[in-house]
Amino acid sequence: MGDFIVKGLRKTYGDFSLEIPELVFRRGFVTGVVGDNGAGKTTLMRCMTGAALPEEGSVDPGSPLPAGAVFDECPFPQEMRARQLSSIFSSMFDGWDDQRFRGMLKSFGIDEGKKVKEYSRGMRMKAQVAVALSHPTGILVLDEPTAGMDPAAREEFLDCIRDYMLDESSCVAISSHITSDIEKIADYLVFLKDGKVIIDGETSEILSRYGVLHAPRDSDICGSGIVRRRTGPHGCDYLVEGLEEFSAAHPELKADPVTLEELMILISKGEEA
């Protein structure tokens, strides 16, 4: 079993083009995919699972097992209850673990007697996760899986992922706008903007590489290391690349380590400096 590798990928929809020369999702780790709406996260994930067919490029899943996919709508037949779902999935998937499925539904608080159409938003996402985790998969591809979940449910979900990762052959690709979740769970980060990968690496390394400098509105700070600038109503934020060197060179400017949210905002909304 090897890494999940995307190579030479190109997928075009009208004006938008997703172009990725090479991207690796390391087996044994969680890779977070972040970016604005329209950056190409969902397109990438659909290409990864085979739902969308790219014009060019290849996807090497590194495993003979199928993917476990969670997308934003709940695709299960609306009139079904847990027992019928079990029946369908045991027919669909090799190695379907029904006990595990029922157990997960129970621990998620999903009533077996409820029809899918009666599930709350959070239950719909959790049900999808339960399905993905109840049969052998080569990769979990999760597109905004925690959208609409309350904090407790999100933490429960993250614990599920941590549990899944106890097996070193597990591989997870997760996209989310909830940057705190990504910070908590992703070992590696991929930043997409306008269909291209602009940052790709270890989460902790990226978050310590970049810093943010808050300054007055009319300031005009330049220097090596300043890569982005964003002017707001109350001040100006600068994104610094190479925080350590910058702080050493400019001890009078107080640059703080960046949070994932700040990094995202400065990259997508900030101008190049």
Binding site: R46, A67, G68, A69, F71, C74, P75
Partner: peptide, 13 residues
Amino acid sequence: KSGWSRFAVSSGI
């Protein structure tokens, strides 16, 4: 509309 087709294809069917 429900995304079932996408789910089935994504799941290796």
